[in-house]
Design a protein around this nucleic acid. Structure first.
Lengths: 218, 218
DNA sequence: TAGATTGTTAATCGATTAACAATC
DNA sequence: TAGATTGTTAATCGATTAACAATC
């Protein structure tokens, strides 16, 4: 495997587009097709064809062929490997309320290489229940259990007031990456990866685009 | 109001950071403080101080004062106005399952200027129920009701197979912006704003950072 | 062979960061 | 006055797009 690409060598912008390519390629594969051109992908996803070609060149272990394009099965395999879809990583989620339950119930994560092995909550009526096959533990046991389970990824889906404390516990338990759905900035050591899912930021960007569109029509 | 800034004139990158500034400023205001320096904001949010100063300069109607910094109340007001937090926009949500319910139940949206006035679902057991004070209507009535309610924003929280059809109906009903939580690319007319909440993309970026951190330690 | 499509180099663009003068 | 902090100009960086030669 001389030509194996690693996630670290792929730009953040490209990484962000890979899941969309993956979905598109899966669809085409299911439809019985075997190859695609960057032009076709670009058209479908409303991207620039050169950008797609560059992205695919970076991640593909098999070069595209003029006139034919890229092999769909090859590309899917490459993305699987780069994004780690081919080997699941264990994660825990803290907060088994509305959003937490929705995330646990979202069956898609396993396909993305994420396996939620335990949930935590501090509400006694939730502790020891099961949500979508995942057991809810007492939030007081986060450090102990995370350490025992050797989990690297923690998902935070608690109200903002509790988020920092939860982050501290996850880190103490040995988590190295935090996916944060609470609307707060978390303070964590710098060798811990944090990805904030900031709904307000997303909504702000949507509002801007909407304002631009409405403005352009006046 | 000679100095009123508009959302269209603020860069996408800056817009994305405004909600975080807003939260931080609200906190400081609640703590009784009246002014902040860009250095302080930058330190707390782990951003570059020049970047913060530039962001604030773009959005602030009152210039910062050397030695004192920016007035917190002024900044909050400016962000409120730019992001539209001061006047709510009506929205509908389609899909009242796990994620949809969580989004409806998420009380924070009103503070962000978003008011969910109706939900839709195609599951008969959900139709005519109420979730967090929001009534669930038959998805068959999307076009009619969206048009009657004169709603500009639609939120899609349905399984991926149904998302495109829902988007079509929302657009037909007159929606001008779509916040899409389904993992599919939507095809809509180009004068419709779409913001994809791509969980897989977020997870991919977190995975990349995690891989980098783990790699750097080896 | 002709044409579609790739891969690469150069140009452009937007955003971030550095340097520094202005000022309360 | 001295120093903290702003505001601005220039340099850098990363990502996108344009131009075009290579090739199946």
């Amino acid at each position: 495997m001389e030509n194996t690409k690693k996630i670290q060598n792929v730009s953040k912008a490209t990484i962000g587009r890979l899941p969309a390519y993956h979905r598109y390629l899966k669809e085409k594969l299911a439809a019985g097709e075997t190859s695609v051109s960057s032009t076709a992908v670009a058209e479908e996803l409303h991207l620039n064809a050169v950008q797609v070609r560059k992205d695919l060149a970076v991640i593909s272990s098999v070069a595209g062929k003029p006139k034919r394009g890229f092999g769909i099965a090859d590309l899917i395999e490459d993305i699987d490997r780069i994004l780690g879809y081919d080997n699941v990583t264990d994660a825990v989620i803290v907060g088994a309320g509305g959003l937490g339950s929705a995330l646990i119930g979202y069956s898609g994560f396993k396909a993305y290489g994420l396996n939620i092995v335990a949930a935590f909550d501090s509400d006694p009526t939730r502790i020891d229940t099961q949500i979508g096959g995942v057991k809810v533990f007492d939030a007081a046991d986060i450090v102990k259990l995370v350490r025992r389970l050797n989990v690297l990824i923690g998902i935070i889906a608690v109200p903002k007031g509790a988020a920092q404390e939860v982050a501290d516990k996850l880190v103490e338990g040995g988590v190295r990456a935090i996916w944060n759905f609470a609307p707060v900035h978390l303070n964590v050591p710098e060798n811990i990866a944090v990805k904030n899912e900031d709904m307000a930021a997303s909504l702000a960007i949507l509002s801007k685009r909407l304002a631009e569109i409405l403005y352009s029509e006046k």
